Amino acid sequence: MILPVFKLGTLALKTLCKPIGNRIKKEAGLHPRFRQSIINIAQANHRLTTTLQRRIYGHATDVAIRPLNEEKAVQAAADLLGELFVFTVAGVAVVFEVQRSSRSEARKEELRKQELEVMRQRDEELAREVEQLKHRLTELEQLTKERGLSGVFNFRHSKATDNKTKDTHSS
Rank of each mutant, 00 (worst) to 15 (best):
Q75P: 00
E83V: 08
V98I: 05
A90T: 12
D79I: 10
H59D: 15
R66I: 14
V92Y: 01
V94D: 04
G91T: 03
Q99W: 06
A76L: 13
A106D: 07
E105T: 10
A60V: 09
A60L: 13
A73I: 05
L68F: 00
S102R: 12
A106R: 00
E97N: 04
R66L: 15
I65R: 02
L81S: 01
V63I: 13
F85I: 07
V89L: 09
V89Q: 05
D79T: 13
V92G: 04
G82N: 05
R103C: 07
A64G: 14
A60T: 11
R103D: 08
A60N: 15
I65Y: 03
V92T: 08
A90F: 09
S104A: 10
L84D: 11
E70F: 07
S104T: 08
G82M: 04
R66Y: 13
L80K: 09
A90W: 13
A64C: 10
V89T: 07
T61N: 07
S104D: 11
E97H: 01
E70N: 04
A73Q: 01
L81H: 07
T88M: 12
A93W: 05
L81C: 12
V94T: 10
T88Y: 14
L68I: 09
A60P: 12
F96V: 08
N69C: 05
E83N: 14
V89D: 03
G82K: 15
V98F: 07
L81W: 12
V92A: 09
A106F: 00
